[in-house]
């Protein structure tokens, strides 16, 4: 037996289109891209304003997408972080409260520190104590919401430096506001982290097969901590941006954020049980959702109808998953087989 003997299984793609097709098939974002294309087409035809006023659309995408980006880091590992919206509220309140007493920089640092502390507590319960992340972060959701009310004395905290807030909402680079720029910077940072940095690349392994990841010598608990910290800090950043841009921190803010960010992640092809998905997918999901929301808002479509649309798209994103389709196909074929057999009798 020599080394030349080679077993060839499967086909190796050749040629540009062959390679292109195989690259496309490898990505998990395929369905998200198709959905995005459909929505983009529909929007172009009906509401061109979505594109002509693209900075507004980008602002909406950044609003719902930022928290989703951080959340995806946790979802990739098969965990959930329900506390993101409350983290957003509490960090906004802390940022403004501290900034009013000292200065903005210290306010921002305090809010970021709060985000880190929250994620450490979340990760401690999930990774060390072993509580299901749904439950642990649900508890955190309520606790932080309450804390936001206590710190703010149950009323929105006005940012004293209103001019700073107004300036923060103005375009910084071309028509792009700081919010949009920060959103893209964070997207690039997390994308590089999960695709280039060893720890980030291992997120998929932790989510895909935790036992195997552990057996292969990956420090699973440390990865879970890292994921929650990303999620918490990004939520805190979103809270700071919201509070500064609105010139006030509202303890009830973020009420529509939680569902929107999960929707963006799911539409982007992320699998809630982990091990499947990508940050780019979430970006595409957020873009689809943002565009759709802006278009529907311009059309004056009422909220319940908007929700039907978003729900429909979520369902499409989920049921077009090949494994769901296989399951549907399997049970259908058994049923048909049965019917055919009964008829044959």
């Amino acid at each position: 037996m020599t080394n030349q003997t080679v077993i060839k299984v499967g086909s190796t793609a050749t040629g540009f289109w062959g390679k292109f097709r195989s690259v496309l098939a490898r990505r998990t974002e395929g369905r998200a891209v198709v959905l995005f294309a459909i929505i983009a087409t529909f929007v172009t035809v009906s509401q061109p304003l979505v594109f002509t006023a693209y900075q507004v659309t980008l602002g909406r995408i950044a609003l719902i997408g930022l928290v989703a980006l951080g959340l995806t880091a946790v979802i990739l590992m098969g965990e959930l972080d329900l506390s993101v919206a409350s983290t957003l509220a509490v960090s906004g309140v802390i940022a403004v409260t501290v900034a009013n007493q000292t200065n903005m920089a210290i306010g921002v640092l305090a809010a970021l520190a709060a985000g880190v502390v929250v994620s450490l507590i979340n990760a401690f319960f999930v990774a060390i104590v072993g509580i299901n992340s749904f439950i642990a972060t649900l508890g955190m959701l309520f606790a932080l919401r309450g804390m936001a009310f206590v710190i703010s004395d149950e009323a929105p905290v006005k940012l004293q430096n209103t001019d700073l807030g107004i300036a923060f909402g103005q375009p910084l680079l071309g028509p792009l506001t700081p919010r949009i720029l920060i959103f893209f910077l964070i997207f690039i940072a997390i994308q590089i982290f999960v695709s280039r940095v060893k720890a980030g690349r291992e997120f998929l392994a932790v989510g895909g097969n935790r036992q195997a990841a552990y057996d292969a010598g990956i420090p699973v608990k440390r990865r879970i901590f890292t994921g929650f910290i990303i999620s918490g800090v990004v939520a805190a950043i979103a809270g700071i941006i919201n509070a500064v841009e609105r010139t006030s921190a509202d303890p009830t803010s973020g009420s529509t954020v939680l569902l929107a960010s999960f929707a963006a992640a799911i539409i982007g092809g992320n699998y809630l049980k982990g091990g499947k998905g990508s940050i780019i997918g979430t970006l595409i999901g957020a873009a689809s959702l943002g565009m759709l929301q802006v278009a529907l808002t311009i059309s004056g479509v009422q909220i319940p109808i908007q929700e039907i649309f978003i729900g429909g798209i979520l369902l499409i994103a989920v049921i077009t998953d090949p494994s769901s389709l296989r399951a549907v196909w399997g049970s259908l074929s058994t049923t048909f087989q049965g019917i055919k057999n009964s008829l044959a009798k």
Binding site: A205, A212, I218
Partner: peptide, 13 residues
């Protein structure tokens, strides 16, 4: 790990 590449799986950990 189903969603990782062949190379990543061979070198996992």
């Amino acid at each position: 790990i189903p969603e990782m590449t062949v190379a990543e799986n061979i070198m996992l950990g």
